[in-house]
Amino acid sequence: MAKFVNYISEAFQELKTNVTWPEWAEVQRLTIIVAVFSVVFALLTYGVDQLFVKALAGFFNIIK
């Protein structure tokens, strides 16, 4: 158990001293970019899904 606690404390120490964290403004900017991209991707996925629904409905109406 002592090895595990030592590992965790060393990991936190390394995160504090050796990792370069981005500035808060950059984090906010990148978060907005990811959110916008996610919404656009979701809308595109919805659009393609609706296109396939209409195409399949049309196909099945033709073969009826």
Rank of each mutant, 00 (worst) to 15 (best):
V40R: 02
G58E: 05
A11W: 09
N6W: 09
V5A: 08
V48D: 04
L15A: 07
L15M: 09
W21Q: 01
K3P: 08
A42T: 03
F37D: 14
Y7R: 12
A2Y: 06
Y7P: 04
T20F: 09
V34W: 11
L43W: 02
S38H: 00
V48I: 04
E14N: 10
Q28T: 10
M1I: 14
A57R: 14
F59E: 06
F59L: 04
E14M: 07
Y46P: 02
I63W: 05
V40I: 05
K16S: 12
V19E: 02
I8F: 05
I33D: 10
K3A: 13
A25D: 10
V48Y: 04
A55G: 07
V39F: 01
V34D: 10
N6T: 11
L43I: 03
A42F: 01
A57H: 10
I62T: 13
V19I: 03
Q13G: 12
V27L: 03
V5R: 03
F59T: 03
V36Y: 01
G58N: 08
E23D: 13
A25V: 08
V39N: 00
L56S: 10
S38G: 01
K64H: 13
A25F: 03
T45D: 04
S9V: 11
A11G: 06
I62E: 12
K16E: 15
P22M: 00
E23S: 12
N61Q: 13
Y7H: 11
K16V: 06
A35K: 08
N61R: 15
A57N: 15
F41A: 12
F60L: 12
N61F: 05
P22F: 00
W21E: 00
I63G: 05
A25K: 11
I8R: 06
P22D: 01
E26N: 08
K16T: 03
N6G: 11
L43M: 02
R29Q: 15
I33P: 01
E10M: 11
K3D: 12
T17N: 13
R29M: 07
I32Y: 09
F52C: 05
V53A: 08
I62W: 14
E14L: 07
N61A: 12
N6Y: 10
K16H: 11
L56R: 09
G58H: 04
G58D: 06
Y7C: 04
L51S: 05
A35S: 06
V5W: 02
Y7G: 07
Y46Q: 09
A2R: 11
A55N: 04
V48L: 08
W24P: 13
A2P: 02
Q28W: 10
R29W: 10
F60H: 13
K16R: 15
V48R: 05
T20P: 01
